[in-house]
């Protein structure tokens, strides 16, 4: 091989980048996916434990529902949401979502941290933890 030293050096640099996800994760096979906690007083007191939409939909698309709610409440002043079963809910992050899911750090943050998502909900809305912090 001609200029073998330079070419091998280049290949090694390339491999260092290309294999980064593999060698940097050695010994981290025990990382478990997060389990958002439903352990809040309000949820415990519920007879039928269900969210405004089915679980699968909420897992996949809650952020789209939230933005839809924001537009509906703030831009169209419509505060009633009719879900896929025809049930009505008040459109309000504080009064509907966070009433049950009052445990932000065990519910919202667990998955958001895992998936490296940094939603800006909390720039305006208060979570209970933050409210207590501010007192």
């Amino acid at each position: 091989m001609y200029d073998g030293g330079k070419i091998i050096a280049g290949i090694i640099i390339f491999l260092a980048f290309a294999l980064f996800p593999f060698y940097s994760n050695i010994g981290k096979a025990d990382i478990k996916p997060p389990k958002p906690s439903l352990d809040t007083p309000v949820i415990k007191a519920l007879k039928v434990k269900k969210c405004v939409e089915p679980e699968q939909y909420m897992r996949e698309s809650h952020m789209q529902l939230l933005i839809k709610w924001r537009d509906s409440a703030l831009r169209h002043a419509k505060r009633v949401y009719v879900n896929s079963n025809g049930e009505e809910y008040v459109i309000s992050l504080q009064k509907t979502c966070l009433r049950c899911h009052s445990n932000r750090s065990e519910f919202c943050d667990r998955c958001h941290k895992y998936a490296d998502v940094d939603p800006y909900c909390w720039d305006c809305h208060f979570s209970k933890a933050k409210q207590e912090e501010q007192r």
Binding site: P21, F22, N25, I26, K28, A29, I31, P33, P34, Q56, R59, E60, S61, Q64, C111, Y114, A115, V117
Partner: peptide, 19 residues
């Protein structure tokens, strides 16, 4: 067509850790 991102990451992390 949203997918469950937590499950996706479970799969991809499995690939990266050879488990």
């Amino acid at each position: 067509l949203r997918v469950d991102i937590i499950k996706v990451k479970e799969l991809t992390m499995g690939l990266a850790t050879f488990h």
